[in-house]
Simulated scan of single mutants.
Amino acid sequence: MKQKFILSLFGMILSFAVCLPVLAVVTGSPDVTVEVTDYNTVFLSLSALVAAIPFVVEIVKGFFPSLKGIWTQVVSWLVAVGLCMFGWWQHLGFLDGLDWYIALLYGLGSGLAANGIADIGLVQWLISLFTRKKKPSKKANP
């Protein structure tokens, strides 16, 4: 028993000695900029949003381990609609400048695409049926 204790103590001292030089490394000059996570990148395209939905759903499932079957899909749809409406509210990415009901349609479509029920191209085509075509502005002649 005493040998195992001494061996584990030696292992801890050795691991501390190995990581000590790593802790003592000085980073570059003090004017180095700090990278900030840009959450706007999730909202750059519909496919990026569809890829983020299962990640958020797995985090939610960590809080509710009894979610199984159809309830996982329902949570996925709710997360998709919630993310799209949040992105619309904050004017993020491709949701900037859209009407609220188009953002809601994107949320429903991204939930369907995240569950594998629909394809992203199909979702974009269906939403394009509901969007208005923007008219070019007429310039006044002087």
Rank of each mutant, 00 (worst) to 15 (best):
L44R: 13
V57P: 00
R132F: 13
Q3D: 12
Q124K: 12
F10H: 08
F130V: 10
L67Q: 01
V123S: 00
L122I: 07
V22T: 06
A52K: 07
P136D: 15
G69N: 00
C19A: 08
F55R: 07
V57L: 01
N115V: 09
F43I: 04
T37N: 12
F55P: 00
K138C: 10
I13V: 13
T33R: 15
I117F: 14
K4A: 15
E58C: 00
V75N: 03
L14T: 12
F5L: 15
N115P: 02
V123T: 03
G69M: 01
G93W: 02
Q73W: 06
W77Q: 13
G111H: 02
S15Y: 11
R132I: 11
L92G: 01
G11K: 09
K4C: 10
K134E: 15
K134L: 14
F16D: 05
K133F: 14
W89T: 13
G109E: 00
A114M: 03
S137R: 15
I6N: 10
G121I: 07
G28T: 05
D96S: 06
L95E: 00
A80M: 01
V75I: 08
I59M: 09
I59G: 10
W100E: 14
F43D: 02
V56C: 05
S8G: 08
A51N: 12
I127M: 08
G116Q: 06
L83Q: 04
